[in-house]
Simulated assay, not measured.
Amino acid sequence: MNPVVIALFPVFGVIALGWLLRRSGLVAAPLWAGINRLSYQALMPAFLFVTISRADYDAVPAGSFMLAAAGGFIVMGALMLALRILPMPGPVYTSLFQGGVRWNGFVLLALAPAAFGEEGAALAALAFAPTVPLVNVMCVAVMTIWGASDHQPNLTRVGIRLVTNPIILGCLAGLAANLAGVFQSGPVAEALDLAGRASLPLILLTIGAGLNFTALRARPGIISLSVTAKLIVAPAIFLALGLLFGVEGVALAVLVGIGATPGAAAAYVLAREMGGDAEMMAGHVTATTLLAAITMPIWIAIAAS
């Protein structure tokens, strides 16, 4: 059996467990927000710091990989902007845009060690540093122009939120520690490593808990378009750019994996806060999360071949 498929079984198994826990009521609904916040704000930055600080980037084409990753999101942003010519309300379009450009890197992080080894896991973690602010800036700009919010966002506040984002700070701190050769071992590194190990299972559980099958009925035509953009067009773009920039081997497989990840739950939050179509966004995240179990192995196998 394809090793990526084998590696995906536990990932999507934990996502399914999260859905069952929410549906059963075994974990009270109000607790999920706290679990999500703990994972994103504290545990995941620790995981990213440890992974990046200990990685050997001299052995991988990190520069070309990062350029191709950033370029992939820029190209997808341009393609999604071109879809504004389609007749649809502005709020619906903002959710279509987010569906095409936002990626759930945590699914890839959970998959990477088993599917790609330490090298692939290190590259997947490194990709967060430039792409998180890039994608957020694009989405906020689109939401500002076409969203239905009654108030204009405070751009200064948005900028502060980006530069103080714990995920970005964890990546940058890990890269600094890697270059300086510090905190790669010892009690501080071990404490962060221990905390970071809890992040991915908890995040996968919250992804499952957030699945909303009812929302799949919201604008099925637009959701189908956004799913196609995310799971078919995006990985093809990332593959093409990877080949163009000379990325190969494990790095190319990880790069295509970035393009093939499902939609991120953060898109639903932004749609709700800034006047997008939140229900459609929830449907997109649910559909891509389910279908990525099929499409991710196919695209990664194509990259590996």
Score class of each variant (00 low, 15 high):
residue 36 N to W: 02
residue 136 N to T: 11
residue 230 K to D: 05
residue 133 P to I: 07
residue 215 A to I: 03
residue 239 L to P: 02
residue 191 A to Q: 12
residue 291 L to P: 03
residue 4 V to I: 14
residue 76 M to N: 03
residue 6 I to D: 13
residue 202 L to M: 15
residue 144 T to C: 01
residue 191 A to P: 09
residue 32 W to T: 12
residue 63 G to D: 08
residue 259 G to T: 05
residue 282 A to E: 02
residue 244 L to Y: 14
residue 55 A to F: 05
residue 86 L to P: 05
residue 109 L to T: 04
residue 53 S to R: 03
residue 281 M to E: 02
residue 1 M to V: 11
residue 153 P to D: 02
residue 198 A to V: 11
residue 277 D to F: 00
residue 140 V to K: 00
residue 248 E to Q: 12
residue 189 A to D: 09
residue 97 F to E: 00
residue 14 V to K: 04
residue 240 A to L: 15
residue 263 G to E: 03
residue 169 L to T: 05
residue 64 S to L: 08
residue 224 S to K: 10
residue 22 R to K: 11
residue 201 P to T: 12
residue 6 I to A: 14
residue 212 N to D: 15
residue 142 V to E: 00
residue 77 G to M: 11
residue 70 A to T: 12
residue 152 Q to I: 00
residue 155 L to V: 01
residue 13 G to P: 12
residue 304 A to Q: 15
residue 122 A to C: 14
residue 112 A to T: 06
residue 147 G to C: 00
residue 75 V to Q: 04
residue 205 L to Y: 09
residue 253 A to T: 13
residue 235 P to G: 05
residue 15 I to M: 08
residue 64 S to Q: 14
residue 199 S to F: 03
residue 21 L to T: 10
residue 11 V to C: 05
residue 268 Y to E: 01
residue 107 V to W: 07
residue 146 W to A: 00
residue 300 I to C: 09
residue 22 R to D: 14
residue 233 V to H: 12
residue 234 A to D: 04
residue 166 P to F: 14
residue 177 A to V: 14
residue 267 A to V: 01
residue 204 L to D: 03
residue 47 F to M: 11
residue 222 I to N: 03
residue 132 V to I: 15
residue 76 M to A: 02
residue 190 E to V: 11
residue 261 T to I: 11
residue 75 V to P: 06
residue 218 A to M: 13
residue 218 A to S: 13
residue 202 L to I: 15
residue 70 A to S: 14
residue 16 A to T: 07
residue 166 P to H: 08
residue 243 L to I: 14
residue 149 S to K: 01
residue 109 L to F: 07
residue 226 S to E: 12
residue 284 H to P: 05
residue 143 M to I: 01
residue 156 T to I: 05
residue 21 L to C: 07
residue 172 L to G: 05
residue 278 A to Q: 01
residue 223 I to F: 06
residue 301 A to C: 08
residue 56 D to V: 05
residue 223 I to A: 15
residue 182 V to Q: 08
residue 300 I to L: 06
residue 3 P to E: 11
residue 201 P to L: 09
residue 234 A to W: 02
